[in-house]
Design a protein around this nucleic acid. Structure first.
Lengths: 238, 238
DNA sequence: CGCGTCCTTGAACCGCGTCAAGCCAGGTGG
DNA sequence: CCACCTGGCTTGACGCGGTTCAAGGACGCG
């Protein structure tokens, strides 16, 4: 893995890359921090001051909330090109943490730099506004799923979310770094229940458990399990 | 209730009012729609195209999701000065509805007008970005509450939310238009469970049930019930 | 080969949702 | 002014789904 400049970055979905204009190049390349985080290392923790915005150049990051006297509750995963580390108003502190799920390259811009970029190209600000607005609808949708679905539906929706968001390898398997606890956290349940439900899905030949890996055999079957809820999602996400 | 211009509007928290500059006045007064919605009337419904952004001038609006073959699930309430009706990317359709909870005056700006306003005063765009970013953290926090709290904690948190967000009258009572179903929806439970828990809280003299009204006698007791979770909220909200 | 970590399965418990019946307050009409 | 009616609220009983606890199994790494 090597540090790279935005010019040659392949993440066309990145909000910085997308709005890159010639007037920016000096600022962006001078003031962009780029660092490698090894698997399981912390990018920031709850309580840290919010100094700017992070972007995943390459890898995978997990944002999570640490419950007092309990285990973790995963909020979301972010991979190539995605923003993370935003949390409400400025001059504030993180209420959640972010770890590298696998070895990752992370870009970082300080708030002052971002404000400079907004001024030169307000399109970035507009895109950020849309992005946050979108994130808000997604977390509202997820809230409804978690509060209304039963176990089978919750786990089907998580599997479908991982399938749709991060894809399968050539063997039709989900990325192997997603373990049972990750699925349990996303579904707001326990790893025991995940095991049970995965066994059920295997009996129905919707998935195939291959040791710790999970092959998705019938994504459409997963989708049909949660079809009652999909009407509330915007077409792009389905 | 009378329609009024932004100049004399008392909602200093309104994002339009806050960013009002002289160059705007023509556009704002010409292109602002303002209408009165009687109690329980719909402002927009799921499936409608998203044409712009709504602001509560005076009154109370409830945003809600209609579950297929089930009762409603409240998302949030918005009162004076607050924005509502935002939902992800542009050129999209609402996945939820909004009704007037009481007689209300609502302001509306079309997307094209908003874009004009952004150009003249990018500060509005910046504030909107922060607002959505903030909304996103709040719905994430709420997600965590709903998924982790037990019944007692959920209902304590809803009562505290209503108390902190909308205040008490001179008799220490919550606004009477919040009924048991509203509380149940906010807490993602049933009205029966709300009744039971309210009776428990009354035995503990934390609240007083007065027919359909609810007096909050010890807000700090409610707060202490959910103290484990408050660490994750930003100071301003607590 | 041995150990640690992750995964699986079983069994017991219990919180909460559901169903059903009754209550109370407020509004309406005679 | 009272009787009735309606809609919201309350309470009890029951049963299911899911969490918890405990034990055992499988995989991967040193």
């Amino acid at each position: 893995m090597k540090k790279i400049s935005c010019d040659i970055c392949p993440n066309t979905n990145c909000l910085i890359k997308k709005n890159l204009i010639s007037e920016w190049s000096d600022i962006v390349e001078k003031d962009k921090y780029q660092a490698i985080y090894k698997k399981d290392y912390s990018v920031f923790s709850a309580g840290n001051p919010i100094l700017g915005l992070y972007f995943v150049q390459d890898g995978m990051v997990k944002e999570f909330i640490l419950r007092p006297q309990s285990n973790i509750e995963i909020v979301r995963f972010a991979n190539n090109g995605q923003v993370f580390g935003h949390a409400g108003y400025e001059n504030n502190f993180y209420t959640f943490g972010a770890d590298a799920k696998i070895d990752s390259i992370i870009c970082f811009f300080e708030n002052s730099v971002l404000e400079e970029l907004y001024k030169i190209n307000p399109k970035l600000l507009y895109d950020l506004m849309l992005y946050f607005s979108n994130q808000h609808s997604e977390s509202t949708y997820r809230l409804m799923c978690i509060s209304q679905m039963n176990l089978r539906e919750k786990i089907a929706s998580v599997l479908y979310y991982l399938y749709a968001g991060f894809g399968l390898n050539s063997e039709n398997e989900l990325p192997e770094y997603f373990n049972r606890d990750d699925i349990a956290s996303l579904a707001c349940t326990t790893s025991e229940q995940v095991s049970r439900q995965l066994s059920d899905f295997q009996k129905e030949q919707i998935i195939d458990k291959r040791a710790r890996k999970i092959a998705i055999l019938k994504p459409l079957a997963l989708k049909s399990i949660i079809s009652d809820y999909l009407v509330m999602l915007k077409p792009a996400v389905i």
